[in-house]
Amino acid sequence: ELTQEQMNLLQYVMDSHVKNRLPQSLATRLILQEDMGSDDNFVFLTEMATRHVQILVEFTKKLPGFQTLDHEDQIALLKGSAVEAMFLRSAELFNRKLLERHTDVLEERIRKSGISHDYINPMFHFYKSVGELKMVEEEYALLTAVVILTPDRQYLKDKESVEKLQETFLHILEKICKRCHPDNPQHFARLLGRLTELRTFSHHHADMLMSWRVN
């Protein structure tokens, strides 16, 4: 069972996770706009990514303990986790159909964006592999917090404090996994395994952007 403190922490993180959703306006704009050329697509997806980062920062600021960290460490954590958190968030958008019927249009926009398929296929493969875990909203929110509070980010000075904060969320996530997937004791481990896959996106992201710009 979750302790009272863990319950409060989870509730607090969930409120902010739900609140910091991509604004519906952006999702509907995705559809209303007629068939965009690939350069409009570029602008649209770049705007979406920028919005993602702003939403990510709002979510992160509300993670209990984050604001007590050194300011430059806060920057290091966000810079180091932004791409991973964005792909995790996109996996949630796709798997929980948060854009309702717009999901397939978004997929089509991405496939026609001019990004090479060497990058796109692994992306949708990742969404599918995350989808198979049938994660509940609490798991997405907590896993995002775990990704952000990763102590081995570049330029991070105070690793111990970040490690302690991350552990808090890992303990809650482990209990949530046991509660929501009682028949699958390996579920928590498989969830953490996805973080390794997520890191590969971070590594390839800069090349992906470069090749996209060239196209």
């Binding site: 705007e47 920057i75 932004a82």
Partner: peptide, 21 residues
């Protein structure tokens, strides 16, 4: 537009400002 800023600039702005619209 914000999209022309680098990732770090967007993060710094968002940390200072408040995009909760």
């Amino acid at each position: 537009p914000a999209s022309n800023l680098g990732l770090e600039d967007i993060i710094r702005k968002a940390l200072m400002g408040n995009f909760d619209d």
